[in-house]
Structures are given as C-alpha cells and as structure tokens.
Amino acid sequence: MPRTRLPIRRVEEYAPEPLPRAQWPGTLAPVQQLLDDGLDLAPVTVLVGDNGVGKSTLVEAMALAFGMGPEGGSTMSGHSTRPSESQLWEHLVLVRELGAAKSGFFLRAETMHGVFTYLEDHPGARPEPVFHERSHGESFLDFVIDRSEWPGLWILDEPESALSFSGCLALIGLLQSIVDTGRGQVVLSTHSPVLAAFPGAAIHEVGEWGIRRADWSDLDLVRNQRAFLESPERYLRHLS
C-alpha cells in the first residue's frame, strides 16, 4: 500500500499568537488540550463525541487553517454566506510532511447545498455533475467520487446527516480507496458508529475531559447505540 505524505502530520498552537483560554472556544477542554499538547494526525483520524463538545470547532479550524472555506468546498474556495466560525484557526500551526499535497476538500453536510449552488454559478474548466439534480446523499457521494482523483486532505464534518446506512458504507469505501492509493488523508467528525469503524483509523473521543484515544468497541457512542438497539423501549418510555 502506498504511503500517504500527510498534508497535516500534527496540529499545534501558533506560539507567537496564543488563543486566550478564557475566551470561547478556548474555554472548551478539547480546544485547550489541542493548544497545550498539540494533536498528531494519522492517515485517517476520526473524532467522536456528543453535541457541543467541540468536534466541529476542531475540524472547522483545521479546514480554515489549511485554506478551505468554512462552509465547505475546496482549498481557495470563495464560497461564504454568513460567517459564524470561531477564530481558533488563526492560532494554529499545521505541521506538514515534505512533498504532501496542498489541495483539499471540506465537506459539511448542512452547507453542501450552498456549495453546490456556488459551483453551478462559478463553473470550472472541466464539466462536472449537476449535484442539485441528485438527492442529498447521492450528491454528497457524487462530490467525493468526482474529486477522488485529486490528491490532498479530506475533512468531513458529520457527513452521516446526509447519508443512509448503505451511504455511510459507500463513503468509507470511497475514502479508503483515496487513502490506500496514497492520494489523500482523512479527518472525520461523526456521531455514526458506522463511520467511526473506518478501518485503521485513529479514533479520538472528544468530551468534557478533552481528547483521548479510544478503541471503537469502547466508545460511548457504540455502547449507547448498541444498548438502544437491543432494548429501545428502555429509552423511549422515559420520553412521555
């Protein structure tokens, strides 16, 4: 299997301009740990955790520091509607490997509709699919297929919101092909136990404790969903 030259080998704080820890998002434990200790990235890095713990803040900052638009798209994308991103990216240093690709793609399921409209309004030199003519999940996968031959960094923020069970499996297959052929690196934020099972991924559980390495079978995400599927009535009866 070809070895991927990692577009991001490690993420560290930009020492000359530290982020105040008393100012959001510096108040989040995972952000504090990233800034204090740095974070090494693998060819495939998966971040999991509950809502609001800082997963999207971390991957968004990596994407912006790499030169991608905050609402998704490729490096140097000019797509933006309503700025809402944190300034964390301005305080990060991305440690690269020599000769690694400088291109990349940031996929956020909730904003891809706007990205597809931007692509239609600003067509490139080569023809590409009309993504709006496909379903949400199909267009998401079509985008990955269409860009899969380009080497670089793939950052995905909770893509399962666009995908079915089979769609999640298809996405893993597409991304694994990109990594296995040495064309790219993947950083993935997810609530999906299916996507978290990405073969060979370095899994980091994100929460009020900060960031910790974890095995798939030990994730709260996996234990909770397994328990629900075994006995959904135990959970649902408390909702009424």
Rank of each mutant, 00 (worst) to 15 (best):
L64D: 00
T45I: 02
L6Q: 10
H91F: 08
L98N: 01
P2M: 11
T45K: 03
D157I: 07
F228Y: 14
V222P: 06
E85H: 15
R134G: 10
L169S: 14
P25L: 02
D180T: 12
G173V: 06
R82L: 06
E128G: 15
Q32V: 01
P127V: 13
R5M: 08
F165H: 09
P30K: 05
L98G: 02
A201L: 06
V130E: 15
Q185M: 12
P2A: 13
L34Q: 03
G114T: 12
P70A: 00
I155A: 08
S148K: 11
G114F: 09
L98P: 06
E90C: 01
D180M: 08
T27C: 01
P43W: 10
A227R: 09
E110I: 09
E12V: 03
Q33M: 07
A162R: 04
A202Q: 05
R108C: 09
G184V: 13
G69M: 13
G124W: 05
L171I: 08
G200N: 10
L88G: 03
S240G: 14
R234Q: 03
P83R: 11
A63V: 09
M68G: 06
Q185K: 08
S161F: 13
I155C: 04
H79T: 06
T190Q: 03
T81Y: 10
S164A: 06
E138R: 08
E97H: 12
A125R: 13
G52M: 01
C168N: 10
G207A: 02
S84T: 11
W24H: 13
P151S: 14
L236M: 08
L174D: 04
A197M: 02
R147M: 13
G78W: 04
H122C: 13
E160F: 11
E71L: 01
L6T: 10
Q87I: 09
V186S: 02
S240K: 14
P16H: 07
I8Y: 07
L141H: 11
W150R: 15
P30Y: 03
F106K: 03
T117V: 10
G72W: 08
V194Y: 07
G69Y: 08
S240Q: 13
P159F: 11
S135F: 12
E133Q: 15
G200S: 03
F116A: 05
R223V: 01
I178F: 14
A100V: 11
H204Q: 01
E90G: 08
S231C: 00
A109Q: 02
R96K: 13
I172K: 14
G73L: 10
P159H: 13
N224L: 09
L34C: 00
